[in-house]
């Protein structure tokens, strides 16, 4: 059935291959940054998962860390999966997934534009919505600005 979440038995197989991942109650997977690329490649290329589509890539600014969130869909099985990566507050950087899913390109640029998270291993990581000379990253909680009100 499309839109159903991934069965926990399938998750158990993932845990054996990647012992460092954490799985929450609602089957959201938290991946260490170092293993992200190999973990995502396994999800895409292993025929047991076949996550062939990255629907959404976004980020959150928490008090202690940045979190980058990936939503995946497997059209073959109808599974959906949410994966997260926690990053430090200072100069957050994470591996780019543009080599796996083309849809990551603009969404990574948007996250870079608004949160200042660096995606390594890709080219043309430039601002996509704001102008090139814009100072700061407006969706960060500590962003300071002057509004237009007179």
């Amino acid at each position: 059935m499309p839109g159903s979440s991934i069965p926990s038995t399938v998750i158990d197989g993932l845990k054996d291959k990647f012992p460092a991942i954490e799985v929450s109650e609602n089957l959201t997977i938290t991946v260490p940054e170092a293993e992200l690329l190999s973990f995502m490649r396994e999800l895409r290329d292993n025929p047991d998962y076949d996550f062939n589509f990255l629907t959404n890539l976004t980020a959150v600014d928490y008090p202690d860390n940045f979190t980058v969130i990936y939503n995946l869909v497997s059209f073959k099985y109808g599974y959906t999966l949410m994966a997260k990566v926690n990053l430090g507050k200072d100069e957050p950087a994470v591996s780019s997934l543009t080599s796996l899913w083309g849809s990551a390109d603009w969404q990574e640029r948007e996250v870079y534009d608004l949160f200042g998270i660096i995606f390594t291993g890709r080219h043309n990581l430039t601002r996509i919505l704001l102008e090139d000379g814009f100072a700061g990253y407006p969706l960060r909680k500590d962003f300071q600005w002057v509004g237009g009100r007179e």
Binding site: L130, P138, W145, G147, G148, R149
Partner: peptide, 9 residues
């Protein structure tokens, strides 16, 4: 949106 960082008033 007048208090936004990116809107002309």
């Amino acid at each position: 949106f007048v208090d936004s960082y990116y809107v002309v008033p």
